[in-house]
Every structure is written in structure tokens, then in C-alpha cells.
Design a protein around this nucleic acid. Structure first.
Lengths: 226, 226
DNA sequence: CGGCCCTTTGACGGACGTCAAATAGCGTGG
DNA sequence: CCACGCTATTTGACGTCCGTCAAAGGGCCG
């Protein structure tokens, strides 16, 4: 499964801690859909991990435009970079109801320097995160709307599969079209048109906040993932 | 000055090394303009630093499209992430003639774990690099062509100023329009139109591979940097 | 002088955005 | 259970930004 989620899971179990030692985590909270978890300039010393539900990590521009950097799935650490510095200027918003567990950065760092294997794992996970950021830039700079959406769907399916949350070819799909638009650099209207086209072409089906991939081969082809 | 360049400079001086100790660096090379420094799948154990000249770090797609992730200026480490893992799938291309100095990753890591201050600095530089990557994604996803180009010019001017390479409001500007296009997700033709427009509007002037900013305020305004 | 890039320019086309109206869900409260 | 209001989605007409294509200059170097 994804390294980031693996680290997240490890931290969650370790947080139980040996009896007698203070608990590692700094609290668990539940946030309801459409609320924001982290405000912009919050120079927080905490590193949040999503335990349940979907969230979005994004950047907002003063005029209201915004870009979603990634969708956070259960087990995801909001940002690996958060281990080493505050994430200022970023917004985390709950898409579904979400439970988050927060860790103190200083605690995590102490843990990191005691456990070489953990350190290695965190670094690898950070590299993976950077790689996904770069693929995002390539998508936004050089791919068409159809390519971007096909890839978005396939990437989500992959990530859910690694968590055992892909049932056959179906997955829960709580995203609103404006989320998809903000993640892919498009408008909600255009997202609607492309997704409609995908469904009419028999590539996917969307029903009841669930998405099923009907023709994975064709979907990969339109995403340029040959 | 930029942290990345600061680290690069520190490594370059340190590479002289104490007499008697083996030199830290693994060689310096000169690459002429338009040649590629790092091939794609080269799973290299080396971390290159640009000492002179301009280079471009990019990702190429199989069909020929490409996205430039950053322009590398003298002192820049190609990628901070390179400290912790190979940069596969990335291409570094010399824009001008370039001299590069390479370090062995394992040497760098050893150095890092002995010198806590250096470690801190490298982490901070990595965070900065990530921040610039995210700004790239926001630009590509949510900004117009004019905004992107205004910001590209201003960012380059800033980075050159930190290196003492901004003379008044003028800087050397060896980029071809196809470089600018690949960095901003546009076509060379459209880049030409927008830059022409900027010049006719009295924002900038480009002559002899040099760019001077005539109206910094207006340029910042069109870049949305109020 | 001739060839090669690079840049500029204009006409045209297409992908995507904007606007607006109609429809569908969905939760809340009567 | 229905009425209501809100938000999300769909659809069509139309507009615009940017891409494509093509031709015509520059600059540079052999």
C-alpha cells in the first residue's frame, strides 16, 4: 500500500504507546463535511492524519480561484513536508465527515531520529509525495481535460485499491464536481460535460456517490496510460 | 539568498576538503548548450549542482510534450529530493553552456548526519523547493497566460537578484521562447504574442538575450502579485 | 551566400469557459 | 408525507483564450 498511508497507520498504532508513557498523539477530532480542518495561516505545530473519510488539500487565491493539490484518503498524512515545517497557506477541507488525529511535530521528529528505519520510510514517502506533485504539474500544464479526468479517476482507484476499498471495479466517490474541477484546473461545467461523455462512451458509471470503471482499458487509453 | 543555492555553495567550498582527506565531489564537467546533462532513466547515485550557466529540469512525455519544472541557476542543486533518492524520469538540459559538479549521494548523506545544522538547512531548502513546485501547479491550473509569464519573469528576477546577477532592472535572459512555453504550459507562438504585448505595453524590454523590467509595478499587477 | 533556428504575425480552429435555465437530489420542517 | 429551499448536476448557446498552421522576416555561423 502507499507509503504515506503505511506511515500514518504505524503512527496511529504506536500512539497507543507503552502504558505509563505519555500518549504520542495530541488529540483526535471529527469534522463534518464541507468544514475546513486547517485554516490558511495557521502556523501549526501539529501534523494531522486522516483516519476516516475524504478530505482535500488545496491552495486558495485571494480572488476565489483555488487549486486542489491532492485528495486525502483514510490513512493519509496531510503532507509529509509537515514533518519538518508548518504548512502555511494550505487549506484542508473535509469532503465527507472526517476524523483526524494530530501529532506534535516535535514528538514526531524525536521519534524519527531514534528509529532509522522509520526515518528511511518517511523520506521515501516524502519522495513519493513529491513525485505525485510533479505529475500534477505535468497534468495541468500539458494534458487535455479528458486526459486529466481519466487519470484522476484511475489514480483514485489505485489508491483505494491499496487500502482494500475497491469493490470489484466500484468505489465510493464522494467528490462533488467542483472538487474535481479544482483538482484538474477546469470548471465544474466542463467537468460535467466530460464525465457525461465518459459515461455515454461506456467508460465509467456514476450512481449514488459511487463510481464504477466499466472499460478500464479504454479509460487508461484516454488517460495516456498505455 | 536562496537556501538551495546556499547549500550548493557550501558543498562546493567544502568539497575542497581538508588536505589528506579524499575530495568530496565526484567530478566537474562542462556541458554545452542544448545538450542534456541527465538522461531519463539514469538511476544515478550522483547529485549534480549547477555551478555556471542556466539549465532546465523537465519531464518529457512519450508523445513529445514536455513540462519544465524549474530553471536551474548557478548554485542550484538540481533537486533537493536528490539527497534522498534518485530522480528518475527527469531530464536536465543545458540552456547555456553549463558547468556541473556532482556529489555522491552516500557522501552527502554521511555529511548530513554528522552536521545537524546542515541537515536543518537542507530540510528547509527542500521545503522551499516543494513550495515552488506547488506554486507551479497553482499557476498551471488556475492562472492565465499573461499571469504565468509575468510571474515567471518576476521570479527569475528575484532569484537572480539574490545571486547578485540583477544589474539595475536588467538581467541576462538566455531562455528561448520554447523554454518559456514548456515552463508555462503554453505554446511558443502564444508566448511570442504575450511577450510582444508586454513590450508594447512598456512592461519589459528584451534585447540581445537580456531582459529589463521597465514597469515593475504594472508587471507585478498583471502577475497578480499585488 | 546559404542554411538553420528563432521569432513574429495573421488567419483560422478548437478546447474550454461563461451564462442561463431547467432538472434532480436532499435535508429540514411543517 | 409533502412542501420548501438549497445545492449539485445537466444542457445549450455563445464567447474567448489559446493552439494550429503557414508564411515571412531576423540572427548567426559556416
Amino acid at each position: 500500500m502507499g507509503l504515506c498511508a503505511a506511515v500514518g497507520r504505524k503512527l496511529q498504532t504506536e500512539a497507543g504507546g507503552a502504558p505509563g508513557s505519555p500518549p504520542l498523539d495530541a488529540g483526535t477530532q471529527t469534522i463534518s463535511a464541507r468544514r475546513t480542518i486547517c485554516h490558511p495561516n495557521e502556523r501549526s505545530e501539529f501534523v494531522p492524519i486522516v483516519c476516516q473519510g475524504w478530505a482535500a488539500l488545496s491552495v486558495a487565491m485571494p480572488d476565489g480561484r483555488r487549486q486542489i493539490l491532492s485528495f486525502l484518503l483514510p490513512g493519509d498524512i496531510v503532507s509529509m513536508a509537515g514533518f519538518f515545517g508548518p504548512m502555511s497557506g494550505r487549506i484542508v477541507e473535509a469532503i465527507t465527515d472526517v476524523t483526524v488525529r494530530s501529532f506534535k511535530r516535535s514528538d514526531l521528529q524525536a521519534l524519527l531520529f531514534k528509529d532509522t528505519a522509520l526515518f528511511e520510510t518517511v523520506m521515501k514517502a516524502w519522495l513519493e509525495e513529491e513525485e505525485r506533485g510533479i505529475q500534477l504539474a505535468v497534468d495541468l500544464g500539458r494534458r487535455t481535460a479528458n486526459e486529466r479526468l481519466a487519470r484522476l479517476i484511475l489514480n483514485l482507484a489505485d489508491r483505494l485499491a491499496k487500502r482494500g476499498k475497491l469493490h470489484g471495479q466500484s468505489m465510493e466517490f464522494p467528490l462533488r464536481q467542483h472538487h474535481i474541477a479544482d483538482a484538474s484546473g477546469l470548471t465544474p461545467v466542463h467537468v460535467s460535460k466530460v464525465l457525461g461523455e465518459f459515461q455515454r462512451a461506456g467508460l465509467i458509471e456514476i450512481n449514488n456517490r459511487a463510481l464504477t470503471i466499466i472499460d478500464a482499458v479504454a479509460l487508461r487509453r484516454t488517460g495516456g496510460m498505455l
